[in-house]
Design a protein around this nucleic acid. Structure first.
Length: 238
DNA sequence: GCCAACGTTGGC
DNA sequence: GCCAACGTTGGC
């Protein structure tokens, strides 16, 4: 949720202007810093994925699957959260200086851990959530790896977190840049139909996090999932 | 606006 | 450590 200036969407961010030095995200969170990592229900990882595919930071040891593609949710319609409009659709990202913004406001540990796994150059779908027409609107890419989300320290920010400190920040964000709109908007309903069909056929969307991890605002996609969704661009909407 | 899903909090 | 209450996410 990036939010620029005062607006932000869940997971939004704001124009990323400062060239600050990057934080060594390499440092692993010390134990205790976060609530138990959520277990991803194992059964859906049937198959190849090694357990722990959704690293939760703590178990960031080396065994977890490395993701290269993502889906990031943000709200394109105005909504007040503690008096602040959290709207941040893909058009808002395009309008930022250099079409770049920081994805701030993520306040879920699992989503935060995924943000910390992101590498410069990786692509993500910009997903419109909590709106009239939810779905994939475009493609963005990571242009700066994880660094502390400053909004956690700002008392007036809707995502202020009094339990965090600058010495040991709890929440992180990345900078993303607009790449392009998808050739057509790909509605959630359409993705869901494929997901349902693939559950029986074994197709690429059978385990898509959008459906299996319902409320995660930052989620990983396998290459197969990413490419399948992209292939829908060329099809007629239906 | 409703409400299901599900993460978080806090009592015990 | 369990689990009920609560709060949030986000589709519909």
């Amino acid at each position: 949720m990036p939010s620029r200036g005062k607006k932000r969407a869940r997971g939004a961010l704001k124009a990323a202007k400062e060239p600050d030095l990057k934080v060594p995200k390499s440092e692993i969170p010390k134990a205790g810093e976060e609530p138990a990592p959520v277990k991803m229900s194992g059964k859906r990882n049937a198959g190849k994925t090694s357990a722990r595919e959704t690293g939760t930071g703590v178990e960031q040891e080396g065994n977890q699957k490395t993701y290269t593609h993502w889906l990031m949710k943000s709200e394109p319609e105005s909504r007040l959260e503690k008096g602040v409009d959290v709207k941040f659709g893909i058009e808002d990202l395009k309008a930022q200086p250099n079409q770049t913004a920081c994805w701030d406001g993520v306040r879920n540990y699992q989503a935060r851990n995924f943000l910390r796994d992101m590498k410069v150059g990786q692509k993500a779908f910009f997903y419109h959530s909590n709106c009239k027409e939810p779905g994939v609107a475009g493609i963005i890419k990571v242009v700066k790896e994880a660094y502390p989300d400053h909004t956690q320290f700002e008392k007036k920010d809707p995502h202020y977190d009094s339990s965090s400190s600058k010495e040991n920040p709890k929440w992180w964000m990345v900078d993303v840049k607009f790449v392009r709109m998808t050739q057509r908007f790909i509605p959630l309903a359409e993705l869901k139909r494929h997901h349902q069909a693939h559950k029986t056929s074994g197709g690429p969307l059978k385990d898509m996090a959008l459906f299996t991890r319902q409320r995660l605002s930052v989620q990983p996609l396998t290459v197969e999932e990413f490419e399948f969704v992209l292939s829908l661009e060329e099809e007629k909407p239906h």
